[in-house]
C-alpha cells in the first residue's frame, strides 16, 4: 500500500516537473527543481540503499524527459547519499521509524535548513554538470543561487499544502 502511495507521488512529481516546472525560467536563470520533494519527504524507515535507488530512478525519469541523460540521476543520487547526514544535523529528537521529515514534525526553522542545504547540493550539482565544458562563474553562481531559492520556496509550499490536507 505504502509502495503504491509512494509511486503515485513519484509519477506525479516527475510529470509536474517535466510538464510545468521545466518550462518555468525566471529571467532565463532560475528553474525550480521540485521533484526532489519526493526524496525530502521519504520517512526514516527507508534504508540507505532503498533511498539511493529511489533517487537514482527519480533523476533518471526526469532526465529521459528533458534529454539530459545522467545529469539529474547523478545529482539526485549524490543528494540521497548525503540526506541521512543532513537530516541528522537538523533533528533534535531521536528518529523513530515512522518519522516523516516535514514542517510539522521538525519545526519550520529546522525544516527550512534541511531543505535549503539539500536543495543547494542538488541544484549545485546539476548546474555544475551542465556547464562543466564552458565555465562562466558569474552565471553559474547566479543560476545555483536563484534556482535553490525558487526550489526551496516551492518545496515549502508543497509541504504546507500537504499538511493542511
Amino acid at each position: 500500500m505504502i509502495f503504491i502511495h509512494r509511486l503515485g507521488w513519484f509519477i506525479g512529481l516527475v510529470l509536474f516537473q517535466v510538464l510545468v516546472f521545466n518550462h518555468v525560467h525566471i529571467y532565463e536563470y532560475a528553474t525550480p527543481v521540485l521533484y526532489i520533494y519526493f526524496v525530502f519527504s521519504l520517512n526514516a524507515a527507508v534504508g540507505r540503499k532503498a533511498l539511493l535507488l529511489w533517487a537514482f530512478f527519480l533523476g533518471l525519469a526526469v532526465d529521459v524527459f528533458s534529454n539530459t541523460p545522467g545529469v539529474n540521476a547523478c545529482a539526485c543520487t549524490l543528494f540521497a547519499f548525503f540526506r541521512p547526514f543532513i537530516l541528522r544535523t537538523q533533528t533534535v529528537r531521536d528518529m523513530t521509524d515512522d518519522f516523516y521529515p516535514s514542517i510539522s514534525t521538525m519545526g519550520f526553522s529546522h525544516y527550512l535548513r534541511y531543505v535549503l542545504i539539500g536543495t543547494f547540493v542538488l541544484v549545485g550539482t546539476i548546474q555544475l554538470i551542465e556547464t562543466f565544458s564552458f565555465l562562466r562563474w558569474g552565471s553559474l553562481c547566479l543560476k545555483i543561487v536563484t534556482g535553490t531559492f525558487v526550489s526551496v520556496i516551492g518545496i515549502l509550499c508543497i509541504d504546507s499544502m500537504r499538511r493542511k490536507k
Binding site: K49, L52, L53, L60, G70, C74, T77, F81
Partner: peptide, 17 residues
Amino acid sequence: DYCLLFLLLEIAGFLLL
C-alpha cells in the same frame, strides 16, 4: 554496501551522460 551502491549508481549516471 550503500557506499558501493552509491558509487555504482553514480558511475551508471556518468556513463549515460
